[in-house]
Design a protein around this nucleic acid. Sequence first.
DNA 1: TTTTAACCGAGACGGTACGTCTTGTCTTATA
DNA 2: TATAAGACAAGACGTACCGTCTCGGTTAAAA
Lengths: 193, 193, 193, 193
Amino acid sequence: MTQHRAGPVRSEEARTAILTATGRLMSDRGYEGLTMEGVAQEAGVGKQTIYRWWSSKSALVAECLLEGFILPDHFAVPETGDLRADLTAWLDSLFQLLAEPRGDAILRALIAAAADDAEVGRRLRERLGGGSVIEDRLRRGIDEDDLRPDAPLTEITEALVGAVIIRALSREAVAPGASDRLVRAVIESSEPT
Amino acid sequence: MTQHRAGPVRSEEARTAILTATGRLMSDRGYEGLTMEGVAQEAGVGKQTIYRWWSSKSALVAECLLEGFILPDHFAVPETGDLRADLTAWLDSLFQLLAEPRGDAILRALIAAAADDAEVGRRLRERLGGGSVIEDRLRRGIDEDDLRPDAPLTEITEALVGAVIIRALSREAVAPGASDRLVRAVIESSEPT
Amino acid sequence: MTQHRAGPVRSEEARTAILTATGRLMSDRGYEGLTMEGVAQEAGVGKQTIYRWWSSKSALVAECLLEGFILPDHFAVPETGDLRADLTAWLDSLFQLLAEPRGDAILRALIAAAADDAEVGRRLRERLGGGSVIEDRLRRGIDEDDLRPDAPLTEITEALVGAVIIRALSREAVAPGASDRLVRAVIESSEPT
Amino acid sequence: MTQHRAGPVRSEEARTAILTATGRLMSDRGYEGLTMEGVAQEAGVGKQTIYRWWSSKSALVAECLLEGFILPDHFAVPETGDLRADLTAWLDSLFQLLAEPRGDAILRALIAAAADDAEVGRRLRERLGGGSVIEDRLRRGIDEDDLRPDAPLTEITEALVGAVIIRALSREAVAPGASDRLVRAVIESSEPT
DNA sequence: TTTTAACCGAGACGGTACGTCTTGTCTTATA
DNA sequence: TATAAGACAAGACGTACCGTCTCGGTTAAAA
């Protein structure tokens, strides 16, 4: 017999409205400028409904990020069989995000969120490649003999992702060919001879 | 701040007290938790004295950073003649900062500050190596034939600094030998054959 | 043939639990501090069950009062044949209520309820004598020649009840003999010569 | 509140604006309906400016009452030499207040405030006669041989004031001649033979 | 020598946002 | 279909800071 309880269930409508509003306000005003009151307003929701399910601003942003309400899903790493090309394409799509009017603001807002909330930090790293997507791609590179088996996957991943973060923080335009040079510098020494 | 006289010239005493208080509160409470009111209190200073000389929290933090009230000066890159060893040592000193109780908090506070203020972003990048110290060292590496003349200095620098940032944001412990692996991965392909 | 209808009927158990809880919370926390959620909790009842039968906090308190869940029933006016003694005894029992630890809180809570709800106001007046118990007793005093037929019953009643209210609001201790002096002052001029 | 300069001394302008707003809102919405947020809005003042100087809603109302921002000053007891006439006139002015559209609301709001704040209770009693104005008038009545020296002043006062409170709470219209009957009933037995 | 102008610590001001609490309505599942 | 449980939108509560503006006092340079 299944244990049941009486009572209403969580409103998916409210949840979605809150995450959507958070995503929009995040890119409009940044992390510091994002207010719970503003989210409640924008979502047409009582503040208590937010606090019932998320304990803090950063928890809200973390889930938002995880569910793809902030960074679009197409930051997946392509897989064409050419490792260098795939990594370069992935970096390019991120650098392009930085070049867009609001793209850099969103990314910096996420960095700020990550800086004061461990959960967001971990999520951001996963989403931007660390620990999962990029590392997986590199692992398959080993399988296909594009990389040597002893390649330092973690360090390569962090070097790539970190470079994106640095660009976001320093607000400097990305020079043409940067993706290519970066991938080559980081990968080449791990390629089979 | 000790009891003293006021006067129509800028009080160095007040300035120092403010920067010191900012540094302390930055590591205690992080960037978001840092308040102008708290700085004024801690420094024994009127709020207007802060606003008279700094336009915002981030301007204050930026100067604090520039003057070495936050990150100690000894993050200079060593120069022993062995490029790899120098870079590894420099990375190690940063990773060690991250391992210290408050070191990671300070660095994350700085990242948050950089994320919402362009000036802090630039300063942080300079201080952590980008654009100056690390790049200069690499350039001297070229002079001494430790690197090929066409080495992508900017990309190498950003990969190195970015990896540190990523570690700070993800709160993951640094594996032994990480500095070495990272330096090798990033440098090797640019070393003369 | 008796008319029947389908479905459950109002739960007397719930009704009683609600009124009991209201009475207890009223004396614990006062009228302002009384919350519908608290009543539901204390009574083990859904909030809707309260709102289904009572339109507001004051309606709930009004019924509570009417049904004797707040002020005990023994505030009836005694009838020994001695009008002055009866009124004095009745006043004394009220002044004694005021002297008890929670008695004054309850009475003030009721006054607050009366102040913002007309229904509670009327009920309180009835219960404390106005319009019924005290006036009835006075009327019988006329019948028994303890009062002149033209005695201003309404005014006498209000003077007596009002004095109790004033004491409750001013939180001043009642001086010994106050009941007696008050009754005498208010009654004497209406006694037969 | 008009646009002006602030400074490190308490702004009389702000204080007055707050008390005025409180008085107006008190009669518009009653004590329960009076909100600190509403007062701040109406007075053109930050909420903190209210909380800096008054600890609670009731403290605010208490001062409002004391300073005559709620009940007008002309509730002084007249003094024509004729005690009965003076008391009757005073009662009439209060009953007339009750008959006015907002008069009863204000008085009930004050009663509610008094019910949950001791300070307001004491102030209200003073203002409506208890302990000072009415009792003083009665004392002068003794001096002028209108009352016997042993007249129970406190009880007479409370009977008179209490009758007004009862009327306010019960929302019943005052019958013509009520003031006169009440004064006579309460006074007569204390008049010299 | 006297202004006078800018500094100082302190802190009140009008505000915004916080996170909690309560209200009264609505929804779900149980009995 | 009445119930207990409880999610919901709304909005008041009292607190913490924001950045601006005086206040009264000090002190160095200009008149």
